[in-house]
Nucleic acid binder design. Structure first.
Lengths: 142, 142
DNA sequence: GGAAGACGTGGGAAAAAGTGGTAGAAAATG
DNA sequence: CATTTTCTACCACTTTTTCCCACGTCTTCC
């Protein structure tokens, strides 16, 4: 499954966020939410997250590094299930981390999704588009 | 398939745009719309876009660069299917980006198509024609 | 030149989606 | 242990979107 597209939704007063209808059939087992490398929430389908976690934790790392990695991967992760209306409730710690309050952008990014505050997303989107076409042009020249 | 030619259509009040009849048989799987490098919407047949995306995402880039690229390639892309009248509906974010409202130019550009507002297209067309002959002459000198 | 088919354009109906609310269950606290 | 509060799952309503149909015009072919 490839996730793509950009969708904007309101959160209700309980912190619930709809996911795009076209994604829902691939998220029956729920999703895993973790803080992203940027100021966003990274969303994996459960199966995909298991693959990522496996890949990372089978690497040969020093025990202390491995403990750190495990804490970051698992302790900050939330397994959320989609309700009958296609929504997940965003845990407060993650909302604060990403600065998401009234509304959020759901962005499909190939194997996973990202949740952004509209303001942060506007900035990130603009800069990524400029960079992307530069990369594309450099590849087309080959 | 090589797309060429220039076509002008009206959008209806629901944001739907017809695609040229001679293109339709090559677009059965739908099209992928992304913001163009200029102020236009770039349209790929699904298969063609997958090739581009594969090429780009299999390259060896630093993880942060790869995330940026993925955001530009996937998050701003929309997969649209042609309806029984040969139309696609243009997502609002892309319409705003390209300044397309009442009518649009569909331009065939080799492997893909581009959607322009008539005003922007007139400017781009004039300048690209002048530049094209200069480019061709510079190539012939080699 | 006429007729038939295709195309552009608009509208309408049905289905889906966004959003808010309510009730039940679980948990926490006194 | 009981009561209150919070969270979750389910339900319902309104808006939006999507799919399908129909009409008028243009092109093409006979």
């Amino acid at each position: 499954m490839m996730f793509f597209g950009e969708f904007e939704y309101k959160l209700d007063e309980k912190g619930r966020l709809p996911l795009p209808p076209r994604f829902r059939r691939y998220l029956k087992d729920g999703v895993v939410l973790i803080p992203g490398p940027e100021k966003c929430i990274t969303v994996y389908p459960l199966a995909e997250w298991k693959k990522v976690a496996d890949t990372l934790t089978t690497g040969s790392l020093a025990p202390s590094k491995m403990r750190t990695l495990n804490r970051a991967l698992f302790a900050t992760a939330f397994h959320m299930v989609i309700d009958s209306a296609g929504r997940i409730s965003l845990p407060a710690p993650l909302r604060d981390f990403a600065g998401i309050y009234d509304e959020a952008i759901v962005a499909g990014v190939n194997k996973n999704m990202e949740l952004w505050s509209p303001d942060e997303w506007a900035v990130e989107k603009a800069s990524s588009q400029v960079q992307a076409w530069q990369i594309i042009e450099s590849l087309e020249q080959k």
